[in-house]
Amino acid sequence: MFDIQKIAKLARLNLKPETESELSTQVKNILGYVEALQAVDTSTVEGYGLSDASPHFRPDEPVERGDPELRVRISARTQGDLFFVPKVIGEGDA
């Protein structure tokens, strides 16, 4: 079942304590509403891809991007050409 604290953690969202229970009720109501789909017979539906198109492809031609400063400086926290983040401990693909 919908556990708002677990999902909020997964979604990296700090919820305001005073609205958390209201938010939880609302999401549960919406989940109750969409529950109606379970009754729809979809046994005849083949696949679910929407587009029959192929994706576009790009030729393997590199483009030099120039000075990184233009791209880095729009960040709120930087150090030189790098983005700064609070200490990261542990692995990436964690």
């Binding site: 999902i7 997964l10 979604a11 969202l13 919820l15 609302q26 999401v27 919406i30 989940l31 609070p86």
Partner: peptide, 29 residues
Amino acid sequence: VPDIIEQYSATRGSGFGAETQRRILLGTF
């Protein structure tokens, strides 16, 4: 904030409004 997970959660918790948060929660679930 000094912690990366907290940085994510605080930035997103205060940056997104109520409806956006609702849909993120719904979609994540």
